[in-house]
Simulated scan of single mutants.
Amino acid sequence: MTLRTLVSSIALAGAVLSPAAFAQQKLVPAQSSVGFTIKQMGVPLQGQFKQFDANVQFDTAKPETSKIQFTVNTGSATMGSKETDAELPKATWFNVPAFPQARFESTAVKALGSGKYQVDGKLSIKGQSQNVSVPVTLTQTGATTIAAGTLPIKRLTFKIGEGEWTDTSMVADDVQVTFKLALTGVGKL
């Protein structure tokens, strides 16, 4: 093997294994959703975020090397009521002018078998950060991979609902965040 062939082989291997190899992985927003469920006076209420984005570098052969970054535009929260939707961006709730995005960044990905993964990372909302562990299930249909899961959080940990809204008899502290992310470019599971 000549030096030129060796250098070319190393460069090709580097290109295949580098993060640029994951550049084809894309979120398909039209097929994706991020929602939340909270109880107000014991009654479950549902909402959703209409704008979000993800930067995914998922290696199906070595999931532990994968990286996931996910952002949600907090100003896109809606619960389907004009009055409630007008309150959500205010300082008491999401404080959108000061904190326009919530962010999740992975620190570890672990395969659990049968298309299930544990994704650990840091969740930041409204200037507050917490380490979380997110159970994710991956399924594939054709060229589309669906990453789905539910993450329970405590809203008061992130200062969502301050002042009189810290009373959990009115609005429960427990929030269930659900997501279904459609991705293209992920390798065969």
Score class of each variant (00 low, 15 high):
54 A>D: 03
17 L>K: 13
110 K>H: 05
147 A>V: 07
108 A>I: 09
171 V>F: 03
48 Q>V: 10
167 D>K: 06
129 S>H: 06
160 I>R: 03
15 A>W: 12
140 Q>A: 11
183 L>R: 03
9 S>H: 09
173 D>E: 14
187 G>F: 08
137 T>S: 14
15 A>S: 12
9 S>P: 00
176 Q>N: 13
22 F>V: 03
26 K>W: 05
161 G>T: 06
38 I>S: 01
174 D>A: 15
59 D>L: 03
59 D>H: 07
15 A>V: 07
108 A>M: 03
22 F>H: 15
17 L>P: 08
111 A>D: 12
32 S>L: 07
8 S>T: 13
129 S>W: 09
156 L>H: 04
188 K>Q: 15
164 E>P: 00
146 I>L: 10
43 V>N: 12
179 F>L: 03
165 W>G: 04
91 A>V: 09
128 Q>M: 14
57 Q>L: 12
58 F>C: 12
112 L>Y: 06
64 E>Q: 08
163 G>Y: 06
64 E>Y: 03
15 A>M: 12
45 L>A: 11
86 A>L: 09
132 V>G: 00
157 T>C: 01
24 Q>H: 04
175 V>C: 05
78 T>R: 04
152 P>S: 04
44 P>K: 10
111 A>E: 07
185 G>I: 02
154 K>D: 10
6 L>H: 06
162 E>A: 15
117 Y>L: 01
119 V>H: 01
49 F>E: 11
186 V>N: 10
138 L>Q: 01
166 T>A: 05
75 G>K: 09
108 A>P: 01
73 N>G: 14
37 T>P: 05
132 V>N: 00
108 A>W: 06
124 S>W: 05
118 Q>N: 11
133 S>E: 05
46 Q>H: 15
97 P>R: 09
132 V>Q: 00
86 A>G: 14
179 F>Q: 01
87 E>D: 12
185 G>D: 06
159 K>P: 01
159 K>T: 08
80 G>L: 12
15 A>L: 15
48 Q>L: 12
1 M>T: 12
168 T>P: 00
181 L>R: 10
182 A>H: 07
25 Q>G: 13
118 Q>Y: 02
168 T>W: 00
45 L>Y: 15
21 A>Y: 06
159 K>F: 08
23 A>V: 02
171 V>N: 02
116 K>R: 14
166 T>Y: 11
188 K>G: 07
59 D>W: 09
167 D>F: 04
43 V>H: 13
144 T>Y: 04
85 D>C: 10
42 G>D: 09
121 G>L: 06
34 V>P: 08
183 L>A: 07
114 S>H: 11
44 P>V: 13
188 K>N: 12
3 L>W: 00
176 Q>D: 14
179 F>A: 00
181 L>E: 09
12 L>G: 05
108 A>F: 04
130 Q>Y: 04
116 K>W: 07
162 E>P: 05
87 E>M: 10
60 T>I: 10
174 D>E: 15
118 Q>V: 01
16 V>P: 02
167 D>A: 08
3 L>K: 02
60 T>M: 08
120 D>F: 01
161 G>K: 04
135 P>N: 03
